[in-house]
């Protein structure tokens, strides 16, 4: 077929399709009537097959470029992409996340054991040889502890609770996201963060114990601490999943297995984010109140932790768990 016949026989369809694609792109697919939608679907199929012909017969010409651009615009528009609606988000939080969490339980368990192991190691080392703690804690921090000060004392004085809450939860979300995505370095980043934070936490516990500050430390952290630490290890689990996607591709192309692992790990992190907001509010408003009995705070901390575990472990899975 010569160029003139090729262009003339289909030109009208291309123009109609282009006009419909433009309108659908600007006003949305819903603005098209039924007849127009049928026309668009037929026109798109025609454009695509004409593009295939033009690519083999007229490569490098303006005709090919024009058809490619039309075929791509149609492909984008007609792609099945479900918009993130509030009902979908709600369904994810309601039933989707718990089943994702249960699927990822081994990774979370591994992350939790690494963090716990590092905390124990940090505690034992700092308790036996306090000097070693300087490897993970700054000299200022140790000096403060030695003089009976704890950073939690000053936290409450510097800022009103609402500002404190916002600062805390934005910071904690950033920490969780960093812990997750540093898994993209074959897991080294996540391992480093989990181990370092475990060592630091263990050392703080040991030194607080040594300088008899433990009760004040617990008074500050027992309301928000348990769940907060756990959620960071969940983010660590997500980081390990990301690393697994990079390291274990078996005999499938990594270009396929890595995005699949990444999506799973992103879901695992996404469900923790609203809890950080809640914990930030607790940490800004409840934790600094030193007149409140530690027992009550611990009760609140245990309650929050139990609420999270009930949500993720006891919610029955639903067939359409994945958004």
């Amino acid at each position: 077929m010569d160029h003139a016949r090729f262009v003339e026989r289909a030109q009208e369809v291309w123009r109609q399709t282009e006009a419909l694609l433009d309108r659908a792109g600007q006003e949305g697919l819903a603005s098209l009537g039924f007849d127009e939608l049928e026309q668009l679907a037929a026109g798109h199929r025609r454009v695509v097959s004409d593009y295939a012909f033009a690519r083999s017969r007229y490569p490098g010409t303006a005709t090919e470029a024009r058809l490619r651009s039309l075929a791509f615009a149609g492909h984008r528009l007609l792609a099945d992409r479900r918009a993130p609606t509030l009902p979908r988000l709600w369904r994810f939080l309601r039933t989707g996340y718990p089943s994702v969490f249960r699927e990822c339980l081994p990774a979370v368990g591994l992350s939790l054991s690494i963090f716990t192991g590092a905390t124990l190691a940090g505690f034992v080392i700092a308790a036996m040889r306090p000097a070693f703690a300087t490897l993970w804690l700054g000299p200022d921090a140790i000096d403060q502890l030695r003089h009976g000060e704890i950073w939690t004392d000053s936290v409450a004085r510097v800022a009103p609770p609402s500002l404190l809450s916002t600062r805390i939860f934005t910071n904690n979300i950033a920490v969780a996201l960093m812990t997750w995505l540093s898994g993209a370095t074959l897991g080294l980043g996540t391992l480093y963060l989990l181990i370092m934070n475990g060592l630091m936490f263990g050392a703080v516990l040991a030194l607080s114990w040594r300088y008899e500050l433990l009760s004040r430390l617990f008074a500050f952290i027992s309301a928000h601490g348990p769940l907060e630490l756990f959620l960071v290890t969940v983010a660590g689990g997500a980081g390990l999943l990301l690393a697994e996607g990079q390291l274990r591709w078996r005999n499938r192309p990594r270009a396929l297995t890595l995005p699949a692992a990444a999506r799973r790990s992103a879901r695992l992190v996404a469900g923790t984010l609203p809890w950080f907001v809640l914990l930030g509010i607790v940490e800004g408003h409840v934790s600094p109140v030193m007149t409140l009995a530690t027992g009550l705070k611990a009760l609140l901390g245990a309650g929050l932790f139990a609420a999270f575990l009930t949500w993720v472990l006891a919610t029955p899975s639903s067939p359409d768990a994945h958004p």
Partner: peptide, 11 residues
């Protein structure tokens, strides 16, 4: 890319 109708799309 594998486009509509399984036609290859080169971008």
């Amino acid at each position: 890319f594998l486009g509509s109708l399984d036609v290859r799309l080169d971008l």
